[in-house]
Amino acid sequence: MATQNIKLGVIGLGNIAQQHIQNVISGAVKNCKITALCARNDSGQAKELGAIHFTRYQDLIDSGEVDTVLIATPTLSHFEITKYALEKNLHVMLEKPIGLSSWEGEELVKLAPEKSQFALMLNQRTDPTFAKMKQVIESGILGEIKRTHWTMTNWFRPDIYFQVSDWRATWKGEGGGLLVNQCIHNLDIFQWVCGIPSEITAFCEFGKYHNIEVEDEVTAYLRYENKATGVFVGSTGEAPGVNRFDIIGDNGSIHFENGKLTQKLNDQSTAEFCANTDEMFGMPKVTVSDLSTDESVNQHAIIMNNFVNAIHNNEALIAPAKDGLASLDIANGILQSSWNKQTVSLPLDRAGYQALLNEKAQSSSLRKKSNAEAKVDMNASYR
């Protein structure tokens, strides 16, 4: 018996939504039919797809035309739209981040009905290189992790990126900048592979490279329960930028840079060699292996197919919505540490952070959108 298509409504029809729509109509996402679209203005796209256009998300959700929604609206509206959909017992795929804050995200997770699938578009979990790094760490071959370091300054954004949007890079509309937009993927992978730190001490620069009120450069120092340390550096103002991710263990290390993944394994643990060698300038012998892959995957389609299979067959979600809380906790903690000039402990006091964000939002406003014509190549947006 053929699997029945889910009836998908897409709320928000911007750049990323168009990519999801293309994945469905091209067949990259299986067992899924778009039956409704929602945006303030009807572009005629719904008619082309044989779907119904709605101008209000409530009307789409209440229509009976959908059993599932994909929410790809500005971050400001994630909470209210997702809340409404979950309360109507629909399945929900939400674009990142899960909310303006992890407090909002936690409230949404609490609302999710037991029989509804609630997932987040954390697509970089399907990247073959990051999946390989996670596999290496979980194998234990590197021993106990001692230090982590990710410099991700390869998120360069020119001014027009912000000018053509009224909500981006505002406390009111996005709840932050670099951390909750671009680097939320990196922070998710960082904690997915290396674990959640116990303390954060951070330094953010606000509007250093752009005429925006939120952070566009970040340096964060992390400390873990086992006394491992970490550093995360991000920027949207550097060109060409750097993307280097290092994980150092007692038995060796793994390094990602420029698409290349390298593993270095010592012939004995660093601690053991340090304690027992009589060579004053000695080093353990090391074996270097190239673990790089040239495999290319459609990350968004993999996440959507997994979501559809979860609905039909209760397949375990690659990125359940609750998993989006950890990276947002880290992002929120980095901002809080920088604002208060003090170390922040995790688990994060989410209500306390929300109060701080509310203060920022009260003095924030959405910007006036520029009428400039922006050239959009979504493939160039991914790093």
Rank of each mutant, 00 (worst) to 15 (best):
G173I: 05
T129K: 07
F54S: 02
A380R: 15
Q45G: 05
Q4I: 10
I247W: 02
E144S: 11
E114S: 13
I98N: 05
P347K: 13
W339M: 14
R125S: 01
L37W: 07
N314V: 03
S26N: 15
K96E: 03
V288Q: 13
L94P: 08
E48T: 09
V297E: 00
D166H: 10
L37V: 07
I196W: 01
T73W: 01
K360D: 02
A331E: 03
D188R: 07
E225Y: 09
G176M: 06
S381F: 14
K110R: 13
A36M: 04
L120R: 02
T148K: 11
C194T: 00
Y57I: 06
M378W: 11
K285S: 13
P197W: 10
L76K: 15
A321K: 11
G173P: 09
A119E: 03
S235V: 09
S269N: 10
H312F: 00
F190P: 03
S292Y: 06
S296N: 06
A202H: 02
T148Q: 03
F307M: 02
N313F: 14
D188K: 02
G352Y: 07
Q135P: 06
E359W: 02
M152Q: 12
A271V: 08
G44W: 03
T170W: 09
T55W: 05
D59Q: 13
Q263I: 14
L13Y: 00
A316Y: 00
L346E: 04
K264F: 03
V242L: 14
I61R: 04
G282K: 14
T126N: 10
N23Y: 09
F54W: 06
N298V: 10
T55I: 05
K172G: 09
V233K: 15
I145C: 09
E104M: 15
W339N: 00
A28S: 14
S198L: 07
S139F: 05
N186E: 14
N181Q: 10
G352I: 01
F130V: 03
I196S: 04
